[in-house]
């Protein structure tokens, strides 16, 4: 096997990575959003990515399910090589769930329909089975009683939990979270984080872009700090929060942990 760079998390968990990015670059015109990204995520690993806004962290995880396409480098997710125009992208997205900052629930469908439309139309699961699954996952995100409501009738925290359940209903093996609590009122953040902690406890592979450092400390196996489109630091949380190596990371942590 060819030489591959060894990353901190690889030493920890071993085995083949489920997400493997090698020298990823991403340009918007002449603006470089991602700059030589090398990282890997193993099955069952929880990775938290943080960094100042505009650092490329959202762009990076959006590349993982091909909502954005990298301009150069190699990206393999769940055994599928990701590139623009690949016929495998839909298959990939069925395996990789995504939770958005703005929820992106379907407002014209009830909560139950939001959860079943993917399994029924994409995975061709029979309705009865899809609905049974949906109820099970609604239970898991603690809102079994809201199945027949429309998203606009729910609070932000409830909507985000429905969005998490929608991804779970696709039986995804990897979950990506793109600032899942940034659009929420403060009192609703914890109900969403609780669900995410519960999800982490089941051994789900998770990549989260978030500034919730309490959550990160609790669940992360690996912390990644990004700035200017580059990965500046990769470390397990105990080291990351106590002795960050780079000055930029230290300054960032000081700022967000201050209050």
């Amino acid at each position: 096997m060819a030489y591959q760079p060894v990353f901190a998390n690889e030493v920890m968990t071993g085995g083949n990575p489920i997400i493997q990015a090698e020298s990823l670059d991403k340009f918007y015109g002449s603006f470089q959003a991602l700059d030589n990204i090398n990282m890997s995520v193993h099955s069952g690993e929880r990775v938290v990515i943080c960094g100042p806004s505009g650092s490329g962290k959202s762009t990076l995880i959006r590349c993982f399910n091909a909502l954005e396409h990298h301009s150069a480098g190699k990206l393999v997710v769940d055994g599928i090589e990701v590139y623009e125009g690949s016929k495998q992208i839909r298959k990939l997205r069925q395996e990789v769930g995504m939770v958005f900052q703005q929820f992106n629930l379907f407002p014209h469908l009830t909560v139950l329909e939001n959860l079943t439309i993917g399994p029924m139309r994409v995975r061709k699961v029979p309705r009865a089975e899809a609905e049974a699954n949906a109820h099970r996952y609604l239970e898991r995100v603690h809102i079994p009683e809201q199945a027949d409501k429309y998203p606009s009738q729910l609070s932000g925290g409830q909507q985000q939990r429905v969005a998490i359940a929608r991804s779970l209903c696709m039986e995804s093996r990897i979950m990506l979270f793109d600032e899942p609590t940034s659009a929420l009122d403060p009192e609703m953040i914890n109900e969403v984080l609780d669900v995410m902690v519960g999800l982490a406890d089941t051994g789900m592979t998770m990549v989260c872009v978030t500034h919730e450092m309490g959550f990160a400390r609790k669940v992360a196996d690996t912390m990644i700090f990004m700035d200017g489109g580059q990965i500046i630091e990769t470390a397990p949380p105990e080291k990351f929060f106590t002795q960050p190596e780079s000055e930029r990371c230290r300054a960032f942590l000081e700022q967000i942990l201050e209050h």
Binding site: L67, R93, Q94, F100, Q102, G118
Partner: peptide, 23 residues
């Protein structure tokens, strides 16, 4: 229709045609 709806549909593996039709 909000652009996030396309992304929501794509993220659960829908094709463009399915996203048009159902979402």
């Amino acid at each position: 229709v909000a652009p996030g709806q396309w992304e929501g549909a794509a993220s659960i593996g829908m094709s463009k045609a399915q996203a048009y039709r159902y979402i």
